[in-house]
């Protein structure tokens, strides 16, 4: 509902500006001694809120197996085409041979990444996560392309709820169709 604000004419004291200026000075004087709110960055770090989307990283499961199976869904979904995966086979004698594939090379170009989180969203293996890492720098364009070992170094190990491939192998060995 519209209403009209009464504009009272300024009093003499207000027209001299002085009481207002003195009031302002009082306020700024208080601020002069109030605690400072600046976060002095390199020494103090901000607390990262849950759900923060930092640098995309690759993770391993608690057994140390790399979770990525190089399905390349993230590569396809990535809007700025920052991800490039070269799929590779897992050797037949490895304990996780039933996974069949693992990335031979996995590059994320951080100059292109827009931190949208679609790769994490789309990953069927829960292998790629946007974690807490927010500070990123390099001396050349090449420095800012995260290769596979760097991605695992940043990502580390996250807890796993499913151990999907272990269950699959157990089901296969037991002759069950489904785990």
């Amino acid at each position: 509902m519209p209403y009209v604000v009464e504009r009272t004419p300024l009093t003499f004291a207000e027209r001299t500006y002085l009481p207002q200026i003195l009031g302002g000075l009082k306020t700024t004087w208080k601020h002069l001694f109030s605690p400072k709110v600046t976060l002095e960055y390199p020494e103090e770090r901000p607390t990262i809120p849950p759900g923060y989307r930092g640098v995309p990283t690759l993770v391993k499961d608690p057994n140390g197996r790399e979770k990525c199976v190089s399905c390349q869904l993230c590569e396809f979904v990535c809007p700025p085409k920052a991800i490039r995966i070269t799929p590779g086979a897992i050797p037949a004698d490895a304990p996780t041979a039933n996974v069949e594939k693992a990335p031979q090379a996995f590059d994320i170009d951080m100059l292109r990444c827009i931190y949208c989180g679609l790769c994490q969203e789309v990953c069927p293996e829960e292998a790629i996560f946007l974690q807490n890492q927010y500070s990123l720098s390099g001396y050349s364009r090449g420095d800012l392309v995260n290769h596979k070992d760097r991605l695992y170094e940043l990502g580390g190990t996250l807890p796993d709820l499913h151990f999907k491939w272990d269950k699959k192998r157990a089901a296969e060995q037991a002759g069950r169709a489904q785990h």
Binding site: T28, H31, L32, F33, S34, P35, K36, V37, T38, E40
Partner: peptide
């Protein structure tokens, strides 16, 4: 410095 202190900065 005075500007910073008045604006709650160091």
């Amino acid at each position: 410095k005075v500007a910073a202190w008045i604006q709650n900065r160091p």
